[in-house]
């Protein structure tokens, strides 16, 4: 059996991995949903075709993240989920709407198709907003004040922008012609909004939270960490330049916006984890205190070691199968 301390670190690393993979993967397909046009069926079809083979597996990372919290840190899981009762219910509503709309739009009567498209878009928006809202409440340590809810709403808008950004990056990479051109425009706009969002959260977070302030300004490694926000800012600026170039010449590295966005996601997420580590419920509960029974977690670990590499392997395989520009999607 492994020591409790080791298991706590390992399971929090796994949980962090699941969350960031979820944010990137489901982020792009939610982003595509947010960008879905209401009045252009061929474009909507192609956009949905680009995420068709993936969305289901992407969403599974959320189940894994929640599952890991449930298994490894049950006390934290129940504190967080009870505090977020209503936003979670709304998020689930969004996820349900989106997931079923994807299948219904292709099979239901033509006159209902547009309704399902709207459900798809609305579901994606609700999911993105509520996830941001919950992130905001988490950062504010679930404090129920007006300021805290305003901040959460701001964070919700930030996550909509972030998912739109990565969704547009995905479309630039996977589509051509008209859709790619519009995606470049959407990408530039959401790049700007996401930049403002990141700036706002980065400034507010250390101001309101003494622990976060110490993490960034008060320890020996703080100095080493400070370049991170700078690199993040530089990436936003590079992104903007790349998009201008892409607009003039569509064959210029169409994968770049997606790749840059993934790097931005990674940096922001790392910053967030660093801000709160080792707390799993900010200011209340650390990963070491919240840990479940080590013997149960050791039993679980065998599966993790054997299965997670396999999951990564066949996920990569599936992306290779559907590599390249999206073609029409039909059930075969």
């Amino acid at each position: 059996m492994f020591s409790a301390e080791y298991l706590a670190l390992l399971y929090s690393a796994l949980m962090a991995l699941a969350i960031i993979v979820y944010a990137v993967l489901d982020g792009y397909d939610l982003g595509v949903g947010i960008l879905l046009p209401g009045n252009n069926k061929p474009a909507a079809d192609t956009m949905i075709a680009s995420i068709g083979p993936f969305w289901d597996a992407n969403e599974t990372w959320l189940v894994l993240a929640v599952g890991l919290a449930l298994i490894a840190f049950p006390t934290a899981h129940s504190i967080i989920l009870q505090a977020l009762y209503l936003p979670i219910a709304f998020m689930l509503l969004g996820l349900i709407l989106r997931g079923v709309a994807f299948d219904f739009r292709a099979k239901a009567k033509t006159r209902y198709r547009q309704t399902w498209d709207r459900c798809f878009k609305l579901g994606s928006l609700i999911t993105a907003f509520t996830q941001g809202y919950m992130l905001g409440l988490y950062v504010m340590s679930f404090e129920h004040s007006l300021a805290s809810h305003l901040f959460a709403a701001l964070s919700g808008v930030g996550v909509i922008a972030a998912y739109t950004l990565i969704g547009a990056g995905w479309l630039i990479m996977k589509c051509e012609g008209e859709i790619q051109n519009s995606a470049i425009r959407w990408c530039r706009l959401s790049n700007l909004i996401a930049l403002l969002g990141v700036l706002a959260v980065s400034m507010v977070n250390p101001l309101i939270n003494a622990y976060v302030q110490t993490r960034w300004f008060g320890t020996e490694i703080s100095l080493l960490m400070l370049p991170l926000p700078l690199i993040c800012m530089v990436l936003f600026i590079i992104q903007d330049r790349v998009l201008v170039k892409l607009n003039q010449n569509p064959s210029y590295g169409c994968w770049l916006p997606f790749a840059i966005t993934v790097m931005i996601f990674l940096l922001c997420f790392f910053g967030l984890v660093y801000s709160f580590f080792p707390y799993v419920v900010p200011g209340t509960l650390t990963i070491f205190d919240a840990l479940a029974d080590p013997s149960a977690l050791t039993f679980m670990l065998y599966g993790v070691v054997l299965v997670v590499p396999a999951i990564i392997g066949y996920t990569l395989f599936s992306y290779r199968v559907f590599w390249g520009k999206t073609q029409d999607l039909s059930y075969y």
Partner: peptide, 23 residues
């Protein structure tokens, strides 16, 4: 926890990923 965890690890990902290829 571990029983649910094994369900996610051994079943959910496999189903969801290969479903894309299947469909």
């Amino acid at each position: 926890g571990p029983l649910l965890g094994y369900e996610v690890l051994t079943a959910f990902f496999m189903e969801a990923t290969f479903l894309g290829i299947m469909l």
